[in-house]
């Protein structure tokens, strides 16, 4: 078991072990949705919410059913983790989408369009898999999931600002669009390396 405090894990997930800049998770939606500020914030909020909730669900299923010493099922089913995790994520996203659509049309319009995208956002599945690798307790896993979402939002919002500024720059044609975004992200990752050593979760 890992005995780091949940607060340390939260800070680590936001800064030193940022899911985007150190684990490279959630790149697709990061590149596609970092043009407008509102989009970036909306997607960030949706990712944070889904990430925190599915981490709790997946934690319960993994330690309640899949591991050999689980209370609900005595067999070792850990090899099924991938298929179970992705099914939980897809079902949860679908359920949330239906609930929001029914009860809060305004929130649905603000957030709803991003929800289907999130099912295939690798950050969600990635955090569930890291939860298993790092052997987190429930509290630590929630801190990691929530911190991961906050960290992802922070980076996508920062990048949106940079991309809006870059819109005025006269770049060579091949670098326009994705290439320069990737290089700028690299420079940002270098800046984030300044946080390294502040806290550690391994």
């Amino acid at each position: 078991m890992n005995d780091t405090s949940a607060l340390v894990i939260f800070v680590a997930a936001v800064f030193t072990n940022n899911i985007l800049l150190t684990y490279f998770l959630g790149m697709c939606s990061f590149l596609a949705c970092s043009r407008r500020f509102e989009t970036a914030i909306g997607l960030g909020a949706a990712v944070t919410f889904v990430l925190t909730s599915t981490t709790i669900l997946n934690y319960g299923i993994y330690y309640g059913i899949l591991v050999p010493e689980a209370p609900l099922c005595a067999m070792d089913l850990t090899h099924l983790q991938y298929i179970i995790f992705i099914a939980v994520i897809a079902a949860f996203v679908q359920l949330v989408e239906m609930i929001i659509e029914r009860f809060s049309p305004r929130l649905y319009h603000a957030l709803g369009i991003f929800l289907p995208l999130i099912t295939v956002n690798c950050a969600i599945l990635g955090v569930a898999l890291f939860m298993v690798t790092f052997q987190f307790t429930l509290f630590q896993a929630v801190a990691f999931g929530f911190g991961g979402g906050v960290g992802w939002t922070l980076v996508i919002v920062l990048l949106t600002g940079l991309r809006q500024k870059m819109g005025y720059a006269n770049l060579p044609a091949p670098f326009r669009g994705v290439a320069i975004t990737m290089i700028v992200t690299g420079v940002m990752a270098m800046a984030y390396m300044g946080f390294a050593g502040m806290v550690s979760i391994q």
Binding site: F24, I180, M182
Partner: peptide
């Protein structure tokens, strides 16, 4: 480290 990955793929 991570920055190298972004920069290499960007180029």
């Amino acid at each position: 480290l991570a920055p190298g990955a972004f920069i290499a793929l960007g180029f």
